[in-house]
């Protein structure tokens, strides 16, 4: 059986009387993409810092590629949220410097910087100082610096912030490609759509505790399916249809009736019931719960729970 690339066992981190991360454990397998989600202050950054070896947990254990974070340092690539680049350094020197700190020989580091800048269409900016780059370009350079030493594990903190949709797509493709090559990727984000598109596994934190760990389908399964029906008539009678949990009339910001269904319930029964009543419909859609809904539901519940 393959060993996890990233493993957290009952990890706790406190700052004085405040518990930033409490009893967190999850495992992330090699070659997969894990989305690390949570509202602000959920403990994501603290967890990432512990994974990078920047902080020690007060309790529990973290292992990366079977080693402590400090020992696995040279096999990790880290992209912080705010790019993390020296403004006055030249682009190629910046990439090579970080690669050398990770153990690459000088010549190889500059060669790798050249190759990756070419791949990301930034060859013309190799000798430009970081302060002369646009925000998007600087984000690309930071991403390149993360990859330059060919790490086995990538930890990306909000990798898509500051990127236009085209470059977001480029990044997504690169991340997928890296996963196909066997790299293990963990990234934190607030953009649920990207997590839905990219992640094989999701871990959701709230107030320092894990509130979900599983696949996207498992996450969606946490909330009922939902149908939206537009009609001029009163649809309150749908509450009597088998599998219907709740019927909500149109309201501010919600022009249609919203019907929540039990998992596995037949949406067609709703259409049949309306037809039997002779009601003309102007809108009908049936959808799984979105990750956004799951996230808001889980993180919101936790946030409202007493500490």
């Amino acid at each position: 059986m393959t060993a996890p690339a990233i493993e957290l066992l009952h990890v706790t981190k406190r700052f004085g009387g405040f518990t930033a991360v409490g009893g967190l454990d999850f495992a992330h397998m090699p070659g997969r993409i894990l989305g690390f989600l949570g509202p602000n202050g959920a403990g994501k950054t603290t967890t990432l810092r512990m994974l990078l070896g920047l902080m020690r947990p007060d309790a529990g254990e973290l292992r990366i590629l079977g080693q402590s974070p400090g020992r696995a340092r040279h096999r990790i690539g880290y992209l912080p949220e705010e790019r993390g680049l020296y403004k006055r350094m030249r682009t190629n020197a910046q990439i090579a410097y970080l690669a050398m700190l990770k153990g690459l020989p000088r010549r190889d580091a500059y060669q790798r910087a050249k190759e990756l800048l070419g791949y990301f269409d930034l060859s013309d900016f190799a000798r430009v100082r970081i302060e002369g780059l646009s925000k998007g370009m600087a984000q690309k350079v930071a991403f390149i610096a993360t990859l330059a030493h060919n790490p086995d594990v990538l930890i990306l903190d909000e990798p898509f912030s500051g990127l236009d949709p085209i470059n977001q797509q480029v990044f997504e493709n690169v991340i997928r490609g890296l996963a196909r090559e066997g790299k293990t990727i963990l990234f934190s984000t607030h953009t649920m759509a990207q997590a839905e598109r990219l992640c094989d596994q999701l871990v959701i934190l709230s107030r320092g505790r894990k509130v979900f760990d599983g696949t996207l389908d498992q996450a969606r399964g946490l909330l009922p399916r939902r149908a939206r029906i537009g009609a001029d008539a009163d649809l309150g009678f749908l509450g009597g249809v088998a599998g219907v949990l709740r019927v909500a009339p149109p309201g501010p910001g919600q022009p249609q009736w919203e019907i929540q269904l039990e998992r596995g319930a037949d949406g067609g029964a709703l259409l049949g019931a309306c037809f039997e009543q002779g009601i003309a419909l102007n809108h009908f859609d049936l959808a799984e719960a979105s990750l956004q809904d799951v996230f808001v539901s889980l993180a919101g519940e936790e946030a409202q729970a007493p500490a």
Binding site: R49, L52, G53, L54, G70, R73, H74, I76, Y78, P80, E81, E82, R83, G84, L85, Y86, K87, L98, L101, K102, A145
Partner: peptide
């Protein structure tokens, strides 16, 4: 500058 741009995190993920 290293603190505010968070490059210190990147550097400290490479060196002690």
């Amino acid at each position: 500058e290293e603190k505010s741009s968070r490059i210190v995190e990147v550097i400290l993920s490479c060196v002690t």
